[in-house]
Amino acid sequence: MATNALARLPDRPAPIPLWKRIARHGWGYIFVSPWVLLYLVFGIYPLVLSFFLTFFNYSFVTPDERTFVGIGNWIRGLEDPLYWKAIYNIAINQSVFIILKNGLGLLIAALLFRIKYGGRIFRTIYFLPVITSTVVLMTIGDNLASPGGPIQKVLIDAHLLDGPLFWKADQTLPMIIIALINTWKWFGISMIILLAGMYSIDKRLYEVAAVDGANEWQMFWKITLPLLRPQLFFLLVVDIINGLQMFGEVFTIGFSVYGGVNNQALTPVLYLYAQAFDRSNVGYASTLGLMLAFLIAALTVFQFKFFPAEDE
């Protein structure tokens, strides 16, 4: 009998009608409404507009003379050598940046994790560039790396460099040097995130490994690194999404909106900016933005599929 009664217990309560639930939780709508309204205007509308604009030639100068061009902007984008040059540049830049930034962040985090004293001071120092503005850091970086600047002077004195190097005019160096400056700015983020990950690892794993005679090196490769996979995955996803949109650094280190005379420092977003605000090709610029967004989405999906945060 008792079991019967228990079995009947979780009877579903009668469903509350929708209007009643809406009335009861009306405050919910009031709390979200300011945000939702702004979001519709400044979030959803621009998104729709960006798709709309890709089918038109549109200029800020003559906004009323909008002409329909169909997929013309898309074909133009796919055939535009400058856009592909920009994609090539950003690919080089981000490969260097992502590897160095996360590699350095991982190294520093691993060391900070193992030391007993001074961890906080080091962490504070390493994080300083993260909170400093791009304009300031690029002003400093530009002067440090310039021909006649201190870094080149040290390299020339050490005979690693034959003479002053005018790297801004070079074909590949600007992207690499900007990646180095950005590594200096951003490795602190990787350090903090990976360090937080390391502290969340069960200490007993290390104790057991130590008893079994494992050394520091083995512990790092066999325990720490595999267990940091979620953090590394997160960093990589965010780095690719943000990194492919990099352009402010190029601009603030003193290149033109076309990335220099030979477009040696042109990046996709910089090119989009030039098309929109220098040439007033708004429809075309919008298309370039969409093309980049699709590329980013494809890379992100690829990452989720082939390098997931957790093993299946």
Partner: peptide
């Protein structure tokens, strides 16, 4: 409140959209 999960889910979806997409249309607006 009814519709909460739908709005929140939609929000999370748009969070993945790269900022570059908003640059030009927001300026136009």
């Amino acid at each position: 409140f009814p519709g909460r999960n739908q709005i929140f889910g939609f929000m999370l979806m748009t969070m993945m959209i790269p900022g570059v997409l908003f640059l030009i249309p927001t300026y136009v607006l």
